[in-house]
Structures are given as structure tokens and as C-alpha cells.
Amino acid sequence: MTLPHKTMMPGWLKYLPLLALMLGFSSQAFADQGIAFMSVFDGESNQEYSVKVQILLLMTALSFLPSMLLMMTSFTRIIVVLAILRQALGLQQSPPNRILIGIGLTLTMLLMKPVWDPIYTDAYEPYDRGEITLQQAVATAEKPVRAFMLAQTYENSLEQMLRIAGDPLDLEPEEISFAVLMPAFVLSELRTAFQIGFMLFIPFLIIDIVVASVLMAMGMMMLSPLIISLPFKLMVFVMVDGWTMTVGSLTASFGGL
């Protein structure tokens, strides 16, 4: 039996163009005039090849997409918690960093889907059809991203960033600039990640203490407790389905978005 050939791209790929809309370019950046890219002189005429300012800046913005992924999504919290979990288990290189980053990216795509769906339908699709301008698309895409970041940001972190920026503390949510909101959001994500990591550390710390106490009572002080406790920690982690519990805790920490 021959399987049908599917040409539909994966659903998450449709969100990649949305990340470029998060940068919030000013209206001057999208002027219709071109800038000279190169000049060719053949002895009789001097011909210039131009690129639009809009296209040039859009291509430049692609280099900032990794930073935007770190600064404006749930990736920071996820990768920090996974790194702390690996440390709590006593494992140095397992799972490898690439595996942790892959898990973090896939979970980020899943958790951010309620945020990116309205951006795709309300901002990118109308802009792709030519119904709205790019500036209007950026303004529309900004709203769900800002709502997500504000919902995950602690008030004291936001106030601290407002003090550093010299802005009033009584600004409305829509009046807070991204330059202030992004560092406050990242600080809040780190705080939440360390809180979750502390709770993950406690059961493994208890196992280490029990093993160290038993070895001390047996007079086996020359034997490293880590060598004995590591198999027990792995066994306990697998028996309680630790990866599923960790992912569930991370998902619950975002409040269902």
C-alpha cells in the first residue's frame, strides 16, 4: 500500500515569520526609497543596484531572532529548570546540552502556541494579503506578546526596571516600553526557574544526605557518596516518571497562558 504524499508544512513552521514582527520597527524604517547596494561603471554609464530599506532591515532583523526567542518567550525558564534538574541528578553531560536545548525549543513552541495563534491570524495573514501595513501588523502582533510577558513578570522586577529607565512607576501596561519590559520579564523568568529548581533539588538532596550518613556510619569515609547515591536518584526519578512531572510543573507555572 502506498502512503499518500503530504506536502503540507509542519504547523509550527508557520510561526517563524511572526518573530520578525516582534521587533517593532519605526515607521521611518519602511520608507519606499531604496539605498545603493553596489555601483557598476562601464565607461559610459554608472548604474546602481538598490535594495529597499524595508528589505534590508528585515534581513538584518533575522540575526536578532535567537535573542528575541530568549527574551520574549518561555524558553529561558524551561532551559534553566532543565539545567538545574540535570545538576540535581548529579549528571554532568547527560542529557547533552543539545538535547536540553531541543526539549526547550519544542516545549516553547507548544507553550507559546496560544500567543502566536492570534499573531498569525490577526497580524501576519492580513499583512500577507496586503490588507494592513507592516506598521499596523507590528502593532497588532505586539498586543498578545505584551500580555504574555506582563502576565509572567513580577511587579517588583518591573518597578526596578522602571526606576533604572527613569520612567514613572504608575505607567499603564500599554505605556511600558519593550526596552523596560524585556529585562523585567527575563529577571522574573529566572526567579521562577530558580524557585522550581529549588523544589526539584530537595528530594535528591535528601537521598544524598541519607547515603552520606549510611556510609559514615559504616566507616566507609573514603568512598564518595555521589557514586552510591547516583543510581538511587536515577531509580527514584524514573519510578516517579520525573520527566513528565517536570514538564507538567513547567506548564502549570505559566498558568495555562
Rank of each mutant, 00 (worst) to 15 (best):
K6D: 15
K6T: 11
L13Q: 08
K14R: 14
K14W: 08
K14L: 10
L16I: 15
P17E: 07
L18W: 01
L19Q: 04
L19M: 12
L19N: 02
M22N: 11
M22L: 15
L23H: 05
L23T: 04
S27I: 12
Q28P: 00
F30N: 00
D32W: 05
D32C: 01
G34Q: 08
G34D: 13
I35E: 14
A36L: 12
M38K: 12
F41L: 11
G43C: 03
Y49I: 15
S50W: 10
I55Y: 09
I55D: 14
L56A: 14
L56K: 06
L57T: 02
M59L: 13
T60C: 07
A61C: 09
L62S: 02
S63W: 13
L65T: 04
P66G: 04
P66Q: 10
S67Q: 12
M72D: 06
M72S: 08
T73L: 11
I79Y: 05
V80W: 09
V81F: 08
A83Q: 14
A83F: 11
I84Y: 07
Q92S: 05
Q93C: 03
Q93D: 13
P95I: 09
R98W: 12
L100F: 05
I101K: 12
G104H: 05
L105A: 11
L107A: 08
L111T: 05
M112E: 15
W116N: 01
W116Q: 05
Y120S: 01
Y124L: 12
P126F: 05
P126Y: 08
Y127S: 02
Y127G: 00
R129C: 01
E131C: 00
T133M: 08
T133A: 09
L134S: 00
Q135D: 15
Q136P: 06
V138Y: 09
E142S: 09
A147Q: 12
Q152F: 07
Y154V: 03
L158Y: 08
L158Q: 10
E159T: 04
L162H: 07
R163P: 02
I164V: 11
A165T: 02
P168D: 15
E175C: 00
S177V: 05
V180S: 06
V180K: 04
M182L: 11
F185Y: 14
I196S: 05
F201I: 12
I202D: 07
P203S: 03
P203D: 11
V211P: 06
V214G: 01
M216P: 06
M216S: 13
G219L: 13
G219E: 13
S224H: 10
S224N: 14
P225N: 11
P225D: 13
I228D: 12
S229P: 04
L230E: 10
P231T: 02
L234Y: 10
M235N: 03
M235I: 13
V236F: 15
V236I: 15
F237Y: 14
D241Y: 07
G242C: 05
T244W: 08
T244D: 14
M245K: 13
T246I: 13
G248C: 01
S249D: 14
T251Y: 04
G255H: 14
